[in-house]
Design a binder for these strands. Structure first.
Lengths: 133, 133
DNA sequence: TGCATACATGCGATATCATGCATGTATGCA
DNA sequence: TGCATACATGCATGATATCGCATGTATGCA
């Protein structure tokens, strides 16, 4: 089940980081699930960084993970009143520098590389993969 | 005006503290304004602590302040889409230990001490006033 | 004009967090 | 069975947050 007694402040703490907001907002706006390499290629942040942020969001109860072989698909936990309202808040956040719009656009293009609706490739931006460049 | 360019993560950071959540939730549920001494007597936290948290919420754009002589009334900034949705999320947060319910009850009782709708007394819990006990 | 009072804040101690680098784990394919 | 790869994490570091204590500022009243 979801609730492992997550304190309210832990939920907001999970969103108190620009990268984590980008992750949640991306998944909220597209209503999609994504594996880590897709997030890396969309947000253009290092693999280890997003891995940790995704973990933080999972521990806060915002994300659920589904393992499929080597890939792990992350999606928003939905159906919980206060979480659903948080997503709504995120979706109407101002996007002054167009960062969120770019994330969504990059993500949509990355989704085109799926085969049969599943990710079959890894990180397409080599300098963001483990080990750096 | 309101917006002094508050970054999204600063809004969530402002709510990433249990005391600040209590403040915002109290004002959201009661749709009231409150001065600092009323908050002290309701939340039963030291004056200097709430003063700082209120300041943090103001800097994040969640609270506005109206000075009336020695008293300063704080209320939620409303009418901004993502803020209004955040308040809605706060209002449906679980209250496992009954903390929020107690805050609201204490606040309602404290409001009975107003004269003409205005606070005319100071902190009624001496050990929480400046200087400690 | 001086005092009581509503609220603000400088300081130091402690704790938590995000990041980069490097490396570890686990899964599937040849 | 070994290698490539998708993802995870230990460690050190710098940044930031909270708190208690004490004190400072500003307003109104006697």
């Amino acid at each position: 089940m979801h609730t492992v007694q997550v304190k309210p402040q832990e939920i907001f703490q999970a969103l108190a980081d620009p990268t984590r907001i980008r992750i949640v907002r991306l998944l909220a706006e597209t209503d999609e699930e994504a594996c880590l390499c897709e997030l890396v290629d969309s947000l253009l942040e290092p693999q280890y960084k997003l891995s940790r942020h995704v973990k933080a969001l999972r521990q806060a109860g915002l994300l659920s993970a589904a393992k499929e072989g080597r890939w792990i698909y992350h999606r928003l936990v939905e159906g919980i009143p206060y979480l659903d309202r948080l997503y709504e808040a995120l979706k109407v956040l101002p996007d002054v520098d167009g960062c969120f719009a770019r994330d969504v656009e990059s993500f949509r293009q990355r989704m085109c590389l799926r085969e049969g609706g599943r990710c079959r490739i890894g990180i397409q931006t080599p300098e963001l993969a483990a080990g750096g460049e």
